[in-house]
Computed example of a mutant assay.
Amino acid sequence: MADCISKQINYIEWPAKDLSATKTFFQEVFDWHFTDYGDQYTAFSGDTVNGGFFHADKTSRPEQGAALVVLYSSQLEVTQHEVERGGGQITQPIFEFPGGRRFHFTEPSGNELAVWSDK
């Protein structure tokens, strides 16, 4: 019998027009931790996701064909408020869907993400 091979999403990378503003936003709102690799790339680690941001003038938006990364929060309203306070722009306020509720936002470099909750 062959050994079980692990296959899972391991790392996510986004473009960032303003690495400094993007880092500050995710540090303050989602408590992500960053390690810089020069002035063009920063890696992050969080509770459930790891990845990085590279300096670029592009954005990652589903309307442009990009995947939508969806984060989880047990307190959706609080998280939406923190996103707004941190400088994120709400693109879709909290709405219901089968299985839960969520909202969409862009972070300071213009990448769109969502946050969902089953609560």
Rank of each mutant, 00 (worst) to 15 (best):
A2R: 08
I5F: 02
P98K: 08
L113G: 03
M1K: 09
Q80C: 11
D39L: 03
E77I: 10
Y11E: 05
Y11L: 08
F25R: 00
Q64E: 15
T24Y: 00
G46W: 05
G51I: 05
S20H: 07
T22H: 01
P93N: 13
K58I: 12
N50E: 12
K17P: 00
S74W: 02
L19I: 11
D39C: 01
T106A: 04
T42V: 14
D57Q: 12
G100S: 09
A67V: 14
N50V: 10
R101N: 11
R102L: 12
A114S: 13
R61M: 14
G110W: 11
I12C: 01
A56L: 04
F34S: 05
F97S: 09
A114M: 07
K58D: 15
T79C: 10
I94Y: 08
K119W: 02
F95G: 07
L68I: 11
Y37E: 13
R102S: 13
K7P: 00
Q75N: 14
F53N: 06
V78P: 00
H104L: 11
A2G: 09
S20T: 14
S20I: 13
Q40M: 10
K17D: 02
F25L: 01
S60T: 14
R85E: 15
S73I: 12
H55C: 06
T106I: 15
L113M: 12
C4L: 11
S6R: 08
F95Y: 14
T91M: 03
T91A: 02
D118R: 07
M1C: 02
L113S: 05
G110H: 09
A21S: 14
P108E: 05
S20Q: 13
T59V: 15
D39A: 10
W116S: 11
Q40N: 13
L113Y: 13
W32T: 01
A2V: 12
K58G: 01
M1V: 12
F54L: 09
W116N: 06
I90C: 09
G99N: 10
Q75T: 14
W116Y: 10
A56F: 07
Q64T: 11
L68W: 10
V78R: 06
I5G: 00
F103W: 06
R61E: 15
F26L: 04
S60A: 15
F34N: 04
K17S: 07
P62D: 08
T59L: 03
N10R: 06
K119H: 10
V70S: 07
S74G: 07
T42K: 00
I90P: 09
K58C: 04
D39G: 08
F95W: 08
A43K: 06
S60E: 13
